[in-house]
C-alpha cells in the first residue's frame, strides 16, 4: 500500500509551515538577544560586536551614500567581466571536453585537480601580468569561476541521455540544430548550475583581490573601514554583500532548478 498514511498519525500532527515560521522567528530573536547582550557586555574590544541598532544606522548611511554605489558598481562590473570571461571560456572548454572523449582523457584531470585549489594565491601573478588596476581583479575572478563552470558543463554534456541525441539524428537535424535544439536545452541545468557555482567563486576571487590591493570597489571599502576600525560600517557592507550574493545565487538556482526541485 504505497502513498498511504497512518490516519492516527495525521490527527495529532501540528501544521508544518506555521511551526517552521515560529521556530525561525524564535531563532532570530535568540540570536539578536545574544548579540545585543554580547555587545552590551563589554567583554570585547570596543565595537567589535556593535549593537544591531548601530549596524542598522550604518546600513542606512550606506544606503544614501553615492560613493558607496559607485564602489558597488565598480565591484559588480569587475565580477560581471570576470564571469563573462571565465564563464565564456569555461563553457567553450567544457563543451570541447564533454564532446570529445579524447580531449577529456587528455586534459580534464588537470582541471579537476586544479579546481579545488586556492585561487587567491595567484593574485601576485595576476598583478604582474595585468597591473594593480581592475584588470588583475577581473583576471582573478575569471580564473576562479573558469574551473567549476568548465567541469560542470563537461559533465552535463556527458550526461545527456543518448536517446535524445539519436532522436535528433533520426530527424536529420544539422549540427547547429543539434546544438540549439538538443544539446543546449538538455544541458540547461548543468550549465546554470555551473554558472551559479562560478558566480559565487567569482565574487570571492574578485573582492578578495580588492581587499588585498586596490583603490576602488567594495573590497577596498571594507579594508578602509577596517583600517579606521569602523566596525558598524564593515558589518553593514558585509551584510549588503552577503545579501546580494545569496539573492543572486537563489535566483540562478531557481531558474536552473525548475524541473528538479528535489535537488538539495
Amino acid at each position: 500500500m504505497p502513498a498511504a498514511r497512518d490516519l492516527s498519525g495525521v490527527a495529532g500532527a501540528p501544521s508544518g509551515s506555521g511551526r517552521v515560521a515560529a521556530i525561525r522567528i524564535a531563532i532570530i530573536l535568540v540570536v539578536v538577544a545574544l548579540w545585543e547582550a554580547a555587545s552590551a557586555s563589554g567583554w570585547f574590544y570596543r565595537d567589535v560586536i556593535p549593537s544591531l541598532l548601530t549596524v542598522g544606522r550604518a546600513l542606512a548611511v550606506l544606503a544614501v551614500n553615492r560613493d558607496f554605489y559607485w564602489h558597488l558598481v565598480v565591484s559588480l562590473m569587475e565580477v560581471g567581466q570576470a564571469l563573462a570571461i571565465g564563464g565564456g571560456l569555461g563553457i567553450a572548454i567544457g563543451l570541447a571536453l564533454g564532446g570529445s572523449r579524447f580531449l577529456s582523457r587528455a586534459f580534464e584531470r588537470y582541471l579537476y585537480y586544479l579546481g579545488p585549489t586556492p585561487k587567491i594565491i595567484f593574485f601576485p601573478v595576476m598583478i604582474m601580468w595585468f597591473g594593480v588596476g581592475p584588470a588583475s581583479k577581473v583576471a582573478l575572478g575569471a580564473l576562479s569561476c573558469f574551473f567549476p563552470i568548465a567541469l560542470s558543463v563537461a559533465a552535463g554534456m556527458r550526461q545527456i541521455d543518448p536517446v535524445l541525441i539519436r532522436v535528433g539524428r533520426s530527424f536529420h537535424a544539422s549540427p547547429m540544430q543539434m546544438a540549439a535544439k538538443i544539446h543546449l536545452p538538455a544541458m540547461r541545468e548543468p550549465i546554470l548550475n555551473g554558472v551559479r557555482l562560478g558566480f559565487g567563486v567569482a565574487i570571492i576571487g574578485t573582492l578578495l583581490a580588492e581587499t588585498k590591493l586596490s583603490n576602488a570597489g567594495i573590497g577596498y571599502l571594507i579594508m578602509q573601514a577596517y583600517a579606521v576600525f569602523d566596525m558598524p560600517r564593515m558589518y553593514a557592507m558585509l551584510i549588503v554583500l552577503f545579501a546580494l550574493a545569496i539573492a543572486a545565487n537563489e535566483l540562478v538556482g531557481r531558474y536552473a532548478g525548475v524541473h528538479a526541485v528535489s535537488g538539495s
Binding site: F44, Y45, V48, I120, R196, G200, I203, I204, L207, L208, T211, G219, I222, M223, A225, Y226, F229, M231, M234, Y235, L238, L241, F242, A245, I246, N249
Partner: peptide, 15 residues
C-alpha cells in the same frame, strides 16, 4: 554555504 564567507576575514582579524 553559497555566501562569500571568505570575505569575512577582516571581521575575524578584528576579533
Amino acid at each position: 554555504a553559497s555566501a562569500p564567507i571568505a570575505l569575512m576575514y577582516p571581521l575575524f582579524l578584528v576579533l
